[in-house]
């Protein structure tokens, strides 16, 4: 890779720049997945170390942050895989469910109708302009059951396919589908309660 700086100088400064520029970002990213401050700090360190060691492979085509986030995603996946090995999915209460169960008895009647209809969400696009909305969404994701949250983050935030997640975690597609379904149902309900339900009427008053 051509560079105007002598290799030693480049190597000496780059990682510290990364820590200053992207350290907090990577930390927040990690924290959302693992919800453990010490673990998140370790993941940032591992990521920067790996980036430092693999800096030759950085071709400059992607933005630095994207490149570092990619490394962090791998580290998070490794970490979650280790957690899964230590506490297999079957230990998660009710993760192994029969097709009909799905644990949504408070949401649907026995006949499969909505117990309470989903309410109209007032201008969701506008909500995303409000900093408190992100706090609410963040809080809702944090409150998910740990394994649901991990699957949801891997799927929706990291953009892994269900196949990838199942292969990595050694769980069945059915299980992954059930957990993601539950996560989405909880998040929907949580946002409805904590954001879209109360806020608009309060603002009008």
């Amino acid at each position: 890779m051509p560079s105007s700086l002598p290799p030693d100088e480049r190597q000496a400064t780059a990682p510290e720049t990364w820590l200053d520029s992207y350290g907090d970002y990577l930390y927040r990213y990690a924290l959302l997945s693992v919800r453990d401050e010490t673990l998140a700090e370790d993941l940032v360190q591992e990521t920067l170390l790996a980036a430092f060691k693999g800096r030759q492979s950085f071709d400059g085509r992607a933005a630095e942050r994207t490149w570092l986030t990619g490394i962090l995603k791998h580290k998070i996946l490794d970490q979650l895989r280790r957690q899964y090995r230590e506490a297999p999915l079957q230990d998660d209460a009710g993760a192994e469910v029969e097709e009909e169960g799905y644990g949504m008895n408070d949401v649907f009647t026995d006949e499969g109708r909505w117990v309470s209809r989903p309410s109209a969400w007032n201008d969701p696009a506008k909500a995303t302009e409000n900093a408190y909305f992100w706090e609410a969404l963040h809080g809702c994701i944090e409150r998910l059951a740990p394994k649901q949250r991990q699957l949801f983050v891997l799927r929706e935030l990291h953009g892994n396919s269900n196949e990838e997640i199942c292969n990595e975690m050694g769980i069945s597609m059915t299980n992954a589908g059930v957990m993601l379904y539950r996560a989405r149902m909880s998040l929907r309900q949580c946002l409805e309660l904590n954001w879209f339900g109360q806020r608009p009427t309060q603002e009008k008053l």
Partner: peptide, 28 residues
């Protein structure tokens, strides 16, 4: 309505990565 809400949830989650992270006060 439900379908619209899940679609929104997905969009918001993707936005969260690019946007909310830079605005949150959490720091190392």
């Amino acid at each position: 309505r439900f379908a619209g809400q899940l679609r929104f949830l997905r969009q918001a989650t993707v936005l969260m990565e690019t946007r909310a992270f830079t605005e949150e006060p959490v720091k190392l």
